[in-house]
């Protein structure tokens, strides 16, 4: 449980850091701030639901919450990448929002609200795992970006990539892991929490870097 509290604290600090400079950061970083804040609110709410055992009859009582969360998460992450890929067309973003809402609604049919929405989570991890290296490669090619460690989106992409890669196989085999590997449950949850803590920590640092970059 200690890892989860550290994770929550990291999310809180990252959210605060993003919100503090929200007016000063660029639009795609604003999306990342929204994403981190949303994650903090959801994880904190999940902890409360778990502790107070609200709706115990639902079994996995946090699963419905994660259905909504993963839907908003995948929308935000898609729009973030569309901005990073310079798809400045408004229609693309509208299409992404509509597409993911339809996808998530349809997914409820295959994965009911009482079960984990692993399909959506897996898809978002795949998107992150493929698009982040591509964007890092674009940064690599961009001759104007010299101090890469001071470049906020490099840090943000690394953070996202750690989260994406760390959870890719975990969510791909989630059902099997739950069914047959219950003895590894705490190990898997802890490793996921540590990976997410590092990822969101890096994203928090990127907010600071973005603020400094724009201040210049």
């Amino acid at each position: 449980m200690i890892y989860f509290y550290i994770y929550l604290f990291t999310l809180l600090v990252s959210s605060m850091s993003g919100l503090l400079y929200l007016k000063k950061v660029d639009i795609s970083t604003k999306l990342a701030v929204a994403l981190v804040c949303l994650t903090f609110v959801v994880e904190f709410s999940a902890l409360q639901l778990y502790r107070k055992n609200i709706f115990p009859s639902l079994g996995g009582n946090t699963a419905p919450l994660y259905h909504i969360y993963t839907c908003i998460y995948i929308i935000l992450i898609s729009i973030y990448y569309s901005y990073q890929l310079n798809l400045k067309n408004k229609n693309v973003n509208i299409f992404l929002v509509i597409f993911w809402i339809i996808f998530c609604s349809t997914n409820v049919y295959f994965q009911p609200l009482l079960s984990q929405s692993t399909h959506t989570i897996l898809l978002q991890r795949i998107i992150i795992t493929f698009l982040s290296p591509y964007l890092i490669y674009k940064i690599f090619l961009n001759e104007n970006i010299i101090h890469v460690l001071k470049y906020s989106h490099f840090c943000l992409l690394i953070g996202l990539l750690i989260i994406g890669v760390g959870g890719l196989f975990h969510w791909a085999f989630f059902d099997d892991l739950v069914k047959h590997h219950s003895k590894y449950r705490s190990l898997l949850i802890n490793s996921q929490t540590i990976i997410n803590t590092i990822g969101y920590g890096l994203i928090g640092i990127s907010f600071q870097l973005n603020n400094k970059r724009l201040a210049k």
């Binding site: 795992t129 290296p133 890092i136 490669y137 940064i139 690599f140 890469v148 460690l149 490099f154 690394i158 990539l161 750690i162 890669v165 760390g166 890719l168 196989f169 975990h170 085999f173 099997d176 892991l177 047959h180 590997h181 590894y184």
Partner: peptide, 26 residues
């Protein structure tokens, strides 16, 4: 399954490490 999970995730992390280090060195 656990082996796939471990090797897969480790390989991807190694890939990230390589990507980051290569970019920084370049």
């Amino acid at each position: 399954l656990m082996l796939i999970l471990f090797i897969g995730t480790s390989s991807l992390f190694l890939f990230i490490g390589f990507l980051v280090i290569f970019t920084i060195i370049h």
